[in-house]
Write a protein that binds this DNA or RNA. Structure first.
Length: 277
DNA sequence: ATCCAGGACAAGT
DNA sequence: ACTTGTCATGGA
């Protein structure tokens, strides 16, 4: 399948810490389970190339997944008006926020606390492998809340999740017993949605923002992790030790509905050494 | 070996 | 309201 798209930075999109299920197989080529389908992803100059052996994926679903129908011109003009953000734009224009599965995003970012991207990817791979192996059908991808809730949390520890295992298990239990709750969150305003997500065990303000941004496409969410904190302190607070809450409030006031995208560009630029800390 | 990683949480000021 | 110690685990 070939999808016309001039403005998608595939590498930045898949490697900027918003999804953990894609492996780079070669320069510019990735493999992973996209909306439940095993795929290989790559680009030409003008198209996104999706190889999907078993079928079942439509161009529209993929286009929606990569947010390709959203016009980013408003974001780009905002980024160009700020010398700090302009540098990130120049490096990673076409970085897009994926509309990934809400449950998977929620689960993955429970695993992200006090952790690094490489090991989160490793945990994701271990979890998928475990559940794929014990399924009757050959279905791939991240386990549903029901599947995880059915497992003993000792299994999750053995998969290497550490102290996060009981957090993930308890959240899976709640979500599987309250199947419409994620939709309730999706319909809530930002503050209420953030409070609801934060009520899950192992989810505080930062992970809640990640879940809202990546799992619910709430573009006003602004996750403040250690990278964002460092970058924002240096770039916007003159090196002062502003805490997470102040940085969060500053970003939402300054960037509003674009805060989530701004965060993604700053985060990736900081991690890739654009701002040289 | 010690420190750090897309933090959360409880306990102590 | 703000600071501190602790929680598994692997890589640097």
């Amino acid at each position: 399948m070939r999808i016309p798209c001039g403005d998608l930075h595939l590498e930045a999109t898949l490697e900027s810490g918003q999804v953990f299920g894609y492996e780079k197989k070669a320069a510019g080529r990735y493999e992973g389970v996209l909306l439940g389908h095993r795929t290989s992803l790559s680009r030409t100059e003008s198209h996104l190339v999706v190889e999907n052996g078993h079928g079942g994926l439509s161009a529209k679903k993929v286009s929606d997944y990569f947010d390709l129908d959203s016009d980013l011109d408003g974001l780009y003009s905002l980024l160009r008006g700020d010398p700090v953000l302009e540098r990130a734009l120049r490096a990673f224009k076409g970085l897009r926020l994926i509309r990934q599965d809400a449950w998977e995003a929620l689960a993955c970012f429970i695993l992200s606390s006090n952790n690094n991207v490489k090991r989160i990817q490793h945990m994701h791979r271990a979890i998928c492998a475990y559940y794929e192996k014990r399924r009757k059908d050959g279905r791939g991808g991240f386990p549903s809340a029901e599947e995880i809730a059915r497992t003993h949390d000792r299994v999750l520890r053995e998969l290497g999740l550490g102290y996060r295992a009981p957090f993930l298990w308890a959240t899976a239990m709640f979500v599987s017993k309250n199947p419409v709750y994620l939709e309730t969150i999706a319909r809530s305003g930002y503050a209420e949605a953030r409070a609801r997500v934060s009520a899950f065990p192992g989810i505080g303000p930062k992970v809640a923002d990640c879940a809202l941004l990546y799992g619910f496409h709430r573009l006003d969410a602004f996750p403040v992790d250690v990278w964002i904190l460092r970058a924002m302190r240096k770039l916007y607070f003159g090196g002062r030790r502003a805490d997470e809450a102040r940085v969060h409030a500053f970003a939402q006031k300054r960037w509003g509905a674009h805060a989530g995208y701004v965060q993604q560009y700053i985060f990736h630029a900081a991690r890739r050494g654009i701002y040289e800390f």
